[in-house]
């Protein structure tokens, strides 16, 4: 564990420095000529954005690790169990019916994501067949919510435009005040996950062995899903529907640190944070001054990377 922290902490620090130093404005030139403007850009624009990227990386990665452990399926991710569609649905409802209450958009997205997860957990618990059921219930609910989103977006083209920006996922214009509550939720979820990590590890051994080792399986699964959902919902509330981080990062971390849950959580958080900072930075500088939202960059990096992982797994005995 110490080795991983020693390796990844400097990389994270370098990423944060790069994220603050580069963008459409040339900070190095400004520091020489106009230090005050340079400080304003760094402290008010770039630092909040880099912190938001770190929170996105940690929140979505922790969520992905938890969901993959709980469902025993390495394809599980926050968007698959319905967190994203729940947030998206609430968001479009707010945009359609309360267009002036944009302040409430963040709270609405969080509530939507969280309530959808509770509904899915409720369905899975009621059926009493948890592992695959959570994913199947998530797919079914996602389909229904996406249909509702499409219908509402047909009613008003302004709503559709606003929703598109939310659905792609991005960190442009983020303010520090938007990050306090998500930061508390994401940090809390990470700490709770680390405390539960040895119990979560038991779930990876299968239900029979986990139960034999004294784990109350259904309670632990529900606790993990709530943590995963809260963590992802906190990210969705300020960054929109950012995809691929929760799916790809746990796979990358697993290759580096193995499957020990505590190590996996730490490694995933570090890799997730670094990846989102760099993806956001890339989106800012590649077509500067035009910005490409981080959600698009993550999909462009994430999808091919995921294919590479899948091809590397060919011949392995690992189950998908």
């Amino acid at each position: 564990m110490k080795k991983l922290i020693i390796i990844f902490t400097p990389l994270l620090c370098i990423s944060i420095i790069l994220g603050c130093a580069f963008g459409s404005a040339d900070i190095m030139q400004l520091i020489g000529n106009d230090t005050d403007t340079a400080l304003i850009i760094i402290l008010n624009l770039r630092l909040p954005r880099v912190i938001a990227a770190v929170l996105c990386g940690i929140g979505l990665s922790v969520s992905g690790v938890l969901l993959q452990c709980v469902t025993g399926n390495t394809l599980a991710a926050p968007n698959i169990i319905g967190v994203n569609s729940g947030a998206g649905f609430c968001c479009i409802v707010m945009l359609t019916f309360f267009p002036k209450a944009s302040v409430l958009l963040q709270i609405g997205a969080f509530a939507g994501a969280f309530i959808t997860t509770l509904v899915i957990v409720g369905i899975a618990s009621h059926i009493n067949a948890f592992r695959g059921t959570v994913i199947l219930a998530g797919i079914a609910i996602t389909a229904v919510l996406n249909a509702c989103i499409s219908f509402l977006s047909l009613l008003d083209s302004d709503v559709l435009t606003a929703y598109n920006a939310f659905s792609v996922g991005g960190l442009a214009g983020i303010r520090m005040s938007q990050l306090y509550v998500p930061a508390i939720i994401i940090t809390g979820c990470l700490l709770c996950s680390l405390i539960l990590s040895r119990r979560i590890q038991l779930l990876c051994l299968g239900d029979a062995i986990a139960a034999s080792l004294g784990v109350s399986i259904s309670k632990l699964r529900i606790a993990c899903i709530i943590l995963a959902s809260a963590s992802a919902a906190a990210v969705v509330s300020f960054a929109g529907l950012l995809g691929f981080v929760g799916l790809v990062v746990p796979h990358m971390a697993r290759r580096i640190s193995g499957e020990r849950t505590s190590k996996l959580l730490i490694t995933s958080s570090m890799i997730g944070a670094i990846l989102v900072i760099l993806a956001d930075l890339f989106g800012r500088i590649i077509l500067a001054p035009t910005e490409i939202p981080v959600g698009i960059i993550m999909a462009l990096i994430g999808a091919p990377f995921f294919f590479i992982l899948l091809f590397k797994r060919r011949g392995d005995n690992a189950e998908m």
Partner: peptide, 11 residues
């Protein structure tokens, strides 16, 4: 209790 089919966790 040790069931018949055992997993192969990467630990």
């Amino acid at each position: 209790y040790l069931p018949q089919s055992l997993p192969s966790p990467n630990i």
